[in-house]
């Protein structure tokens, strides 16, 4: 059997199986995240949330999926048909392919590449295309405004995310995600780099267009923003893509700052639990914070959003980068990584 997987055909089969092994649980989690979000929001607003379909409303995700599949896909007159259909596919595909490099346990990544974190950064910076293309191809002013808002917003917050990643890389000495997690054996980076942890998480909210930075949707001003013209499965792909992106950002936060699959303390009661459970647990905790933030904060005004990104986070992350470098050099803690 091991021999079969070394033949070209066997390698192809293995690759497909590996991809399925990460994508199927991910899609199930995404489906349930939509239900969980409604349940969490309901609990925080003293409501019940979905409770009709299945026990405790647990089958709601499948009811929604069925409804989306049955509905008619409407393509507006004057829309650019090809790009209109292309945009949700881009959003959804990009949210999926980033998971190729995420290590869910020591060495458990589909592709353990040298420049894993750059790959992650590149893919997350591409996410804006789905939105901006959707906004333009819809031939609708609300969608267009949403697309433009999103483009400016995501480009702005990527800058501080980049600086945060660089300051983590300084402490690791490698671009490999596996090495980044292993460098946190003694202390998770959320403790020494606490301000960067906060900056990264808030930028992750902006990068995924989540509340309080959900101006590209802005239902009170521009109806539903970039996906106002989308219906049925095209809408569902945006919706699933958004939640998959939230999972991706939670996973990035977990890997960069919360020690990935590592238990909080490397002692027996914690080390009995397999790493993959720690990883999923931390990702779900981050997801809960995403929902918690949505239930708590009002939406930012656009100038406030830009001010926060350019005048607060950018100087702060730049300053902290210099501080990190100086501390590492002065204390002689510079990692001697070769990767």
């Amino acid at each position: 059997m091991a021999g079969f997987f070394r033949t070209p055909f066997g390698m192809l089969i293995l690759m497909v199986l590996e991809a399925l092994a990460i994508l199927v649980p991910l899609l199930l989690l995404v489906a349930y995240a939509t239900v969980a979000e409604r349940k969490v929001l309901a609990a925080m607003q003293l409501r019940k949330g979905p409770n009709v379909v299945g026990p405790w409303g647990l089958l709601q995700a499948f009811a929604d999926a069925g409804k989306m599949l049955m509905k008619e896909t409407i393509i507006p007159t004057g829309a650019n048909r090809l790009l209109f259909l292309f945009a949700p596919m881009v959003t959804f595909t990009l949210a999926m392919i980033a998971w190729a490099v995420i290590p869910v346990d020591n060495g458990w990544a589909v592709a353990d590449v040298n420049v894993g974190i750059l790959y992650l950064f590149a893919i997350s910076s591409l996410g804006v295309y789905g939105i901006i293309i959707a906004g333009w191809a819809s031939n609708s002013k609300y969608a267009f405004l949403g697309g433009l808002r999103s483009a400016a917003q995501m480009v702005s917050y990527e800058v501080s995310i980049g600086f945060v990643m660089v300051s983590v890389l300084l402490c690791v000495g490698s671009l490999n995600l596996n090495d980044i997690v292993l460098a946190q054996r003694h202390v998770w980076f959320c403790i020494p780099l606490f301000p960067m942890f906060i900056v990264f998480f808030i930028s992750a909210l902006a990068e995924t267009n989540r509340s309080p930075f959900d101006l590209p949707e802005g239902e009170s001003e521009i109806v539903a923003g970039f996906f106002v013209e989308y219906s049925a499965m095209t809408f569902a792909l945006f919706f699933l893509g958004e939640y998959a992106n939230m999972f991706l950002m939670s996973a990035s936060t977990t890997i960069l700052f919360l020690g990935g699959w590592l238990p909080p303390v490397g002692l027996p009661p914690f080390t009995w639990i397999p790493g993959v459970f720690w990883f999923v647990g931390k990702v779900l905790a981050c997801m809960f914070v995403f929902m918690w933030v949505r239930a708590t904060f009002p939406r930012f005004r656009y100038d406030q959003l830009m001010r926060l990104g350019w005048k607060v986070f950018l100087p702060l992350s730049l300053l902290w980068l210099v501080v990190t470098a100086v501390v590492l050099v002065l204390t002689g803690w510079v990692p001697q990584g070769t990767a």
Partner: peptide, 26 residues
Amino acid sequence: AEFLAMILVIVYVGAVAVLFLFVVMM
């Protein structure tokens, strides 16, 4: 050259081309 490949995608596709697209659409 995986580093150059990723930098090309991040800088040109992720930032420069977004602004191109932004301007051309406007």
